[in-house]
Computed example of a mutant assay.
Amino acid sequence: MLMKWLAGIFLIGLLAYAGWNIYAVQKSPKEGIEEGMKAPDFTLETLSGKSTSLSDYKGKKVLLNFWATWCKPCRQEMPDMQELQKEYPDVAVVAVNFTSSETNSQTVKSFADTYHLTFPILIDKSGVNADFNVLSYPTTYILDENGTIQHIRVGTMTKKEMKQKLDLK
């Protein structure tokens, strides 16, 4: 009789555990590069050689921008990105440079110095831009505090558009 009770309790516990796991998996967004998905994590070096991961910014809204120095629209939006970072320090502006298309890393550093950029510029020699299916520059991903992609924009964004997509006042 005691064995039947223990087996019943064990079975109920097992079913509850399975139900909870199914609920937890359905509740969290799948990883991917489309709106509503959790952005895939990556680790790259900054211009100063420090290793940085996208997951380091969890808990903050993120403007993840893919760009290159030779891209004229990228040059247009960089000052707006810098102003946004200054005005909203709780928002992470992260710029991933398409480094394999650059002459060298010094070109990227000179660009950052010219535009007085203070947000992290990540050097992409490993193909993260391809992982995000970036076909045109600039391409910007807006992520919420949990790393979920809220918006994808191919082309230049103004500061006003950045604020709107980040839901800033």
Rank of each mutant, 00 (worst) to 15 (best):
M1G: 15
K4V: 12
W5K: 15
A7N: 12
I9H: 07
L11P: 09
A16I: 10
A18L: 13
G19P: 08
I22Y: 11
A24E: 13
A24C: 04
V25K: 15
Q26C: 00
K27H: 11
S28H: 11
P29K: 08
P29F: 10
E31W: 06
E31S: 13
G32P: 11
G32A: 07
I33M: 04
D41G: 06
D41S: 08
L44F: 03
G49K: 01
G49Y: 02
T52H: 01
T52E: 08
S53V: 02
L54K: 07
L54E: 09
D56M: 04
D56S: 10
K58R: 15
V62C: 15
V62S: 12
N65K: 02
T69Q: 02
C74A: 07
M78L: 08
P79S: 00
D80K: 09
M81A: 07
E87R: 12
Y88A: 04
V91P: 06
V94D: 03
V96Y: 06
S101H: 07
T103C: 00
S105A: 05
T107E: 15
K109E: 12
S110Y: 03
F111P: 00
L117Y: 01
T118I: 00
P120S: 01
P120K: 00
V128R: 03
V128W: 06
V128A: 04
A130G: 05
A130L: 13
V134W: 03
S136A: 14
T139D: 03
T139E: 07
I142R: 06
L143V: 13
N146C: 01
T148R: 09
R153A: 15
V154I: 15
M157N: 10
K159C: 05
K159P: 05
E161M: 12
E161Q: 14
M162C: 07
D167F: 02
